Computed example of a mutant assay.
Amino acid sequence: MPKGRYLGLIKDYDGGTMMECYVHPSVDFARVPEMLRYQRAFLEDRLRRISRSHVVYPPLRDAATYLAGASRGQEAAARLLQIPGVKEANWTLADLVASLGANRDADRARTSLRTELLQVVRKIEDQNFAWPFRQPVDTSEVPDYLEIIKDPIDLFTIDKRIRKGEFYKNREMLRTDLVRMALNCKEYNDPNSTYYECAVNLEKYLATVFT
């Protein structure tokens, strides 16, 4: 902005950078809301030409009438296919059967992994050296624990993570937490303590479980 435009009209601060707002003469700023409405209508019209996302379908009334001819294994897919809008989105019965089958396989795999990991934790809990690891460390008894151990872990927390079903994707992720549990114990406790000895025994046991 040329200095002559503002000199004597507004305060000039040392080191300040003057800025101006330019009002374009061809834009009627009093009609901005109206212009935005026209722009929105234009965009919605173009979207309707290439998409059916604006279509609202009626609810499904009687699914049973659509299951004729579908095998027992295909009933779920047949029901989905009759949801208004599914066919219009180019889904076929074969597509839905394949999708549902993949989901069932994934569910079975998650259930199998959860069972396997829980068995590992149960076996560790049954060991004589497991008592320091069964519950989170009580920081009211050891106030400085979290200052030394930045990433605490214990069997109770691990059990909750397994049961939730989304945290551990494989055995190696569980092993990582269990190893860290032993390392935390060794880091915080004196090498001559019973706690340290339990951590060493845990490490030895993990070496036999994860081979």
Rank of each mutant, 00 (worst) to 15 (best):
M1R: 03
M1Q: 04
P2Y: 10
K3M: 05
G4D: 14
Y6M: 07
L9D: 06
K11Q: 11
D12F: 01
Y13F: 12
D14F: 07
D14T: 09
G16H: 06
M18I: 11
E20N: 08
S26F: 05
A30Y: 01
Y38L: 15
Y38M: 13
Q39G: 12
A41Y: 02
F42E: 12
L43C: 11
R46Q: 15
R46C: 10
R46N: 10
R46A: 15
R48I: 08
R49T: 11
R49M: 12
I50P: 00
S51E: 09
S51N: 12
S51F: 02
S53P: 00
Y57D: 01
P58E: 14
R61I: 05
R61E: 14
A64F: 03
Y66E: 06
L67K: 05
L67M: 13
A68R: 14
G69Y: 08
A70V: 09
S71H: 01
G73S: 11
Q74C: 04
A78M: 14
R79N: 06
L80P: 00
L80R: 13
L80I: 11
L80D: 09
Q82L: 01
I83K: 04
I83M: 10
P84L: 07
G85E: 08
G85Y: 06
V86M: 12
V86L: 06
N90V: 05
A94L: 07
A94M: 03
D95I: 10
S99K: 12
S99H: 15
L100G: 12
A102P: 00
A102T: 05
D107F: 13
R108N: 07
R110M: 10
T111S: 13
T115A: 15
E116M: 11
E116T: 13
Q119I: 02
V120C: 04
R122G: 02
I124C: 03
N128G: 03
N128Y: 09
F129A: 08
A130V: 03
P132S: 12
F133P: 01
R134T: 15
Q135D: 10
P136Y: 05
V137R: 14
V137F: 01
D138V: 03
D138R: 13
T139C: 05
S140C: 00
E141H: 05
V142Y: 08
L146N: 08
L146W: 00
I148V: 15
I149Q: 02
D154V: 06
L155E: 06
T157L: 05
I158N: 04
D159A: 13
D159R: 15
K160E: 11
R161H: 12
R161K: 15
I162L: 10
R163I: 06
F167P: 00
E172S: 14
E172F: 02
E172Q: 15
D177P: 00
D177G: 02
D177R: 01
L178R: 06
L178E: 02
L178K: 07
A182F: 02
C185D: 08
K186P: 01
D190R: 13
S193P: 00
T194Q: 07
Y195C: 07
E197W: 00
E197P: 00
C198I: 02
A199R: 03
N201A: 11
K204D: 11
Y205K: 05
Y205R: 08
A207C: 01
V209E: 08
V209N: 01
F210A: 10
